[in-house]
Design a protein around this nucleic acid. Structure first.
Lengths: 133, 133
DNA sequence: CATAAACCTTGCCATCGTGGCAAGGTCAAG
DNA sequence: CTTGACCTTGCCACGATGGCAAGGTTTATG
């Protein structure tokens, strides 16, 4: 399998596959005489694993850890669960931050009549210190 | 006011103030003979505005628009409201994406007994195609 | 006055994950 | 043999921010 084919099959772009190789996330692949990278089913599987983990918001560094756990037949599932739960906590924090932004912004937008008049509580809210944080 | 002072007073780092100046988000400040940037109350006010908008998750490009609306005495509040609501929709999309990630991950983590045994539904869920998306 | 500390200047590099472009080599089909 | 699709490497870009280095300035203190 050339890089383009495995890219299409795994959902990871060729560009990113080369990148993952260079940062040591995946091993260097075999090369044809012409220097073309060659991949097999296991590579495709691995790349799909990475793709799914990315889709779940894991960073490449976290994925590096996941992969080492994946490779380790003696690892306890608790190790993986710990990683997953740390990531859930991270997602929670990000969701909470965005939700708070949203809430503040909704309050400001609600106060704005949104017509042709120039005075606007949104800009005022940004300009003046917020009442209570 | 030197850059450090206005940085402390506005919550925007000196580094970022210089950056904002270079990308044209704020005007170039006056300089002392020695080349030190000088700021006044209006600058402090402007930088605080920017800081608050950043805290609400506006991008620098959106802030650029907000600032031009802020400067424009003839703008309608509807223009600002439109910008704010677009940003709210953006926040909603990001929150939804993170929430979906979280939910998938929670399901996987829930299925994982998290003990010393090596088999782990989390890794399996990452390796195998998800049942239904 | 000399010196040290705290401040300022510019400029380059790093992050994180990804995309784009360019210049060139390769391979398969027509 | 040419064309087009593919591959290679390498460099630059984003967005927003931080860090470091090398040098100039100002202020405070001995």
């Amino acid at each position: 399998m050339n890089i383009g084919e495995v890219a299409r099959a795994s959902g990871v772009s060729a560009k990113m596959i080369r990148h993952y190789e260079r940062i040591g996330l995946i091993r260097e692949s075999h090369r044809t005489l012409a220097g073309y990278r060659q991949y097999d089913e296991r590579d495709r599987h691995l790349l799909r694993f990475i793709r799914r983990a990315r889709d779940l918001g894991f960073s490449l560094d976290q994925i590096r850890q996941l992969l080492s756990l994946w490779d380790d037949p003696s690892r306890a599932s608790a190790d993986v669960k710990r990683l997953a739960e740390a990531h859930i906590a991270d997602l929670d924090a990000r969701i909470a931050a965005l939700t708070e932004m949203r809430s503040t912004l909704v309050t400001l937008a609600h106060a704005c009549h949104g017509d042709h008049r120039p005075d606007c509580p949104i800009l005022q809210g940004l300009a003046d210190p917020p009442p209570a944080s």
